[in-house]
Design a binder for these strands. Structure first.
Lengths: 226, 226
DNA sequence: CAAGAATATATACAACTGTATATTAAATGG
DNA sequence: CCATTTAATATACAGTTGTATATATTCTTG
């Protein structure tokens, strides 16, 4: 894990001035304050400073305001995403179900003591334009990588995928929103969750394939306009 | 629309005491303050009171605290959902594509000057346990209604749907999260959005149907364990 | 090592917050 | 109609907030 490690603050002698305050100190402090019951949008500059054990004014040495810090938190979550994608690709070589192993990687990452990704999954739909754009960037990144993988895997089967962009978008959206639900879920429901998500993803992939082949099914396809 | 109508505050003589303050005054004031760039979790009691043109202490006559008001906002959004479902069912009789017409109803409602539903789509993943539970209730409600409809429509075709619960969940999650994206989208992209969402939903429905029939496709089904 | 630059803290200010208590005005019921 | 109850406002308090300016300490460089 190449991102920022967040641990409990070390007890520090409260005498005088600190030598140097790093940007990471503030990032760590902030992410310790947010969670399922506390939105990043409610953070105050002073409480972040307090959590970091610094004077409020030092905050301005690293961030223009709390919103800029929030954007940074989202960007940090992007690292966790890259980790997921990397490992999922590694596991895709193992001959097991790509969907299942990818879901497992995703869930494992959410189980890990990595605090940035949950924030991304939970937030990103309300906030400053910069904050929302940052979250959207991560979503886009995940979509594009997934799309590339879907196309590649289809090619390995000697097929051409139709609408890979929409497939990737649907899967990404589903996985992100289901991921945010997982965060609040008791552990004993995790197996059931995994099975459900695997099936849902397979529905999308299977449906996409059938639609690409122009196979006629049911009537939810609408008037014959294929 | 049987819910609370929200309009600009009427200019009020700022002389002395108001006759009676209604709960709806506060609800309307609150929803006027939230939006794409402002989370409900950042609302203060005093600013809601200010927006409603009342003294802060009057707030306590109707709500215990701002969180209770936030829960009420989510419950109000449930009314908009019921409207969508009702109209989508009406249109389902018209012989057109159920998926397309339902997406159109959904989008029309988001276009309407109805402020509660956007809040539900944007928020609901961070906040107090009560707030999150309120949002989850609405999601559950939508899922259950959709599931019932899917089962009914399948029966009309003389079929039995497999995993209607998962299909409904996948579609609901997708629609809600895509809906929140629509809120920030320029109008000229709405047509494309609608087409994309229709296709995505069809992928899920088609995939579910194929999987139910046990049709073998590609290898993203995993090792043959059907 | 020492002087100067950079940086962390202290102090200050004005504004905001939630909530308690007191006061005043509208509603209610006989 | 009037006395009482109910409800809206005013005032107060203690705490918080972001940010500006002053002060003190650490870092850097020659």
């Amino acid at each position: 894990m190449a991102g920022i490690r967040v641990e409990a603050p070390k007890s520090r002698p409260v005498l005088g001035r600190r030598a140097v305050i790093s940007r990471e100190d503030l990032i760590k402090a902030a992410v310790r304050l947010v969670g399922p019951n506390r939105s990043v949008s409610t953070l105050s500059l002073r409480e972040v400073a307090r959590q970091a054990g610094i004077a409020p004014n030092s905050f301005y040495r690293h961030f223009r305001d709390v919103d800029e810090l929030a954007v940074t938190l989202v960007d940090e979550a992007g690292r966790a995403l890259r980790e997921i994608i990397g490992e999922a690709r590694q596991r895709a070589e193992s001959g097991r179900s790509v969907v299942r192993s990818s879901v497992e990687v995703f869930m494992k990452q959410l189980d890990a003591d990595e605090p940035f990704l949950p924030l991304l999954l939970r937030e990103g739909t309300v906030g400053s334009p910069a904050f929302k754009a940052a979250a959207e960037r991560q979503l886009q990144y995940f979509e594009e990588e997934l799309q590339a993988d879907l196309v590649r895997l289809a090619a390995l089967r000697g097929e051409t995928m139709v609408s890979p962009h929409l497939v990737a978008k649907a899967v990404t959206r589903l996985v992100f929103t289901m991921g945010s639900s997982l965060l609040d879920m008791p552990r004993e429901q995790h197996d059931e969750f995994r099975e459900s998500l695997v099936i849902m993803i397979r529905m999308i992939l299977t449906g996409a394939e059938v639609m690409a082949r122009g196979i006629e099914l049911g009537n939810h396809r609408g008037p014959s306009r294929q």
